[in-house]
Design a protein around this nucleic acid. Structure first.
Lengths: 356, 356
DNA sequence: CTGAAAGCGCTTACAG
DNA sequence: CTGAAAGCGCTTACAG
């Protein structure tokens, strides 16, 4: 090493000084640091890795064509930031199609090239998860549940309850839950949010009405169709709780194009706090993609530095409601009020219980 | 190596077989490949790197808190995909604040740990660029111009002209260009788009009117103020060409909240083709973040494999116009038409030249 | 076409 | 507190 010669010490001492090992005399340490700076020296991680067996790198597995690129972009930078603090680098494996997917799990190129793996925006099969386990390094699932594996995700049940509670507090009684029909990703989220929806209804003593829970294809026409089914119900909902902000934007745009005022005639509540939610004045249940990435990185580095820590730990992050302009109390519908009740179909048992 | 023993050959032969070196007998190659598969063997890049001096890794420098996370997320996955085809891995360095930024350029942790560097969504100073040059590896600037360095970016001038031509073809004559006042990023883009705006006007024989080019703080209130200044002009524009879709969404939302119909009374045209542009029915000049990342990755790998290729090559990507529902012909303004012209202030020289 | 040997740049017992 | 020496897992002339 040139640094060693310049500092007048052995390479062993250079190595120790640079890594902050305490058993180095202050003078030696200073000389080494100066020499390193003067020569713009940076350790070769390859050489270090070869002897320590640690790469100081963490691989992250993502879809190559992310459905929510804003989430991925934000989460990745959160991860990279969190890892950098621990002196770890971030390696991205973006998997675009099924061929690549198969090849990745067949060859596992991350083997020996990363100290840990994170999986984000990507739902794996149980076989794929088992294959990752074979890598023999910690694996952390981000923004998703993975049974018996370390996971970082938001509390979808509580988030959905927060949103429902808010709508109920505004006075809404007929509230739709609109979810994506896409089963391929974020499956637990969708399920958990529905659980939260039902729990909130139950607590409020309101009946669960199947016709108010609709699934939409994740496309403009799919969402339009779902909105259509709601607008043609004998009794329209007064609020729509939408599974994601992305879909909620579309819902708002469709409603307004139909002349239905949001929030005057219909409240719309999203989930995520998309970067545009503020601009577009969408009320939403917020999660932080950045924080999720950051926390996941911290979990990885803690598992890496402290092998005694539970490698299957689950971290559940909170959500919070952000009220904006897309929600308001339900319209005081003059036709449907007291006198009109008789015109409706006879109240169902569920409703009378509540009304009495 | 266990693989060598299992295949009954030397490690030299294993190495050659696995790398596809031609001087290996077919039988040996087959035995090695089988053994490698059976043992789920993956090469240690660290060990390879140590001897070849190549890491087979490319570092990408990004802001830790990206302004346009969707762009970064899409671009990164495009990059990772493009690199993977060349057998290269992607390393992400996310730089959050000025301290980290200084530390990065002081220490250059990428040194000896990446074969090339890409810079995306990040405008560096000339000193920082020179520092990167000192790494002695190819550096590619993505989504930006960098003088005398390899760069991949869209043709902002042509894109702006496409957008203008479209608005002119619709019949608009008073067209605003609304740009962000933020000088910190995408500076060339903003400048080039303005050039395209002016060129298109000139070609159409229309005067350049300073009061129609407005800068807005990148915030809801900043944009509202800019829109206000346009709405209080003696003669309102009939179309707004907005520097980015992000801002255009906000503009549309503000206009509509003021009761100004888009596109009935005012057309709005964006730039980018943001993932939500289709949902929100925003006409826009499209660029592909994914393709940009992909092309940048290809440029990197071509420079890496063919050292004779020009290391300062610029690749300019095309844009294309996507007409949607936020643009329409200008309103046929009955009051302002022929008879009303006299009521306006006397035509300025610029206007008369045009009108005569 | 193949193998033995040297060596890439570090870290780590070990001896002092 | 420090240095000489061995060795991590590969690749690459070199000799055969």
């Amino acid at each position: 090493m040139d640094v060693a010669r310049r500092a007048g010490v052995s390479t062993s001492t250079v190595s120790r000084a640079l890594r902050g090992v305490p058993t180095v005399s202050p003078e030696a340490r200073i000389r080494v640091e100066r020499a390193a700076r003067e020569l713009s020296f940076a350790l070769s991680r390859s050489a270090s890795s070869l002897v320590t067996g640690k790469t100081r790198r963490v691989a992250v597995l993502t879809p190559g064509l992310p459905r929510a690129p804003w989430f991925l972009g934000t989460c990745l930078t959160g991860m990279a930031g969190g890892l950098r603090e621990a002196g770890l680098d971030l390696l991205v494996y973006a998997i675009t199609d099924t061929t690549e997917r198969a090849a990745f799990f067949e060859r596992l190129p991350a083997r020996r090239n990363a100290d840990a793996v994170m999986v984000v925006s990507f739902i794996l099969t149980e076989e794929e998860r088992e294959r990752l386990d074979e890598l023999g390094v910690p694996v952390v699932y981000v923004s998703q549940h993975a049974p018996d594996r370390a996971s970082v995700y938001i509390d979808d049940v509580a988030g959905a309850r927060q949103g429902m509670q808010y709508l109920l507090n505004l006075g809404h009684r007929r509230i739709t839950y609109l979810q994506s029909a896409a089963a391929d990703s974020f499956v637990w989220s969708a399920y958990d949010r529905l659980v939260g929806y039902r729990e909130a209804l139950e607590e409020a003593g309101l009946p669960y009405d199947d016709s108010l829970v609709v699934r939409a294809e994740y496309s403009r026409s799919g969402i339009r169709e779902a909105v259509g089914s709601l607008l043609s119900l004998p009794q329209m909902p007064t609020a729509l709780f939408v599974e994601s902000d992305d879909m909620a934007f579309e819902v708002m745009s469709i409603l307004r194009s139909c002349g239905i005022d949001v929030p005057g005639r219909m409240s719309v509540l999203g989930f995520d706090d998309h970067p545009l939610a503020e601009s577009l004045d969408l009320s939403t249940v917020a999660q932080s993609a950045w924080r999720t990435g950051c926390i996941a990185a911290e979990l990885v580095s803690s598992v890496l530095t402290d092998p005694s820590s539970d490698p299957t730990r689950h971290i559940v992050l909170p959500t919070h409601l952000i009220p904006r302009g897309s929600t308001a109390p339900p319209p005081t519908d003059h036709q449907a009020e007291t006198p009109a009740v008789a015109q409706q179909e006879p109240p169902s048992p569920g409703r009378t219980v509540n009304g009495s």
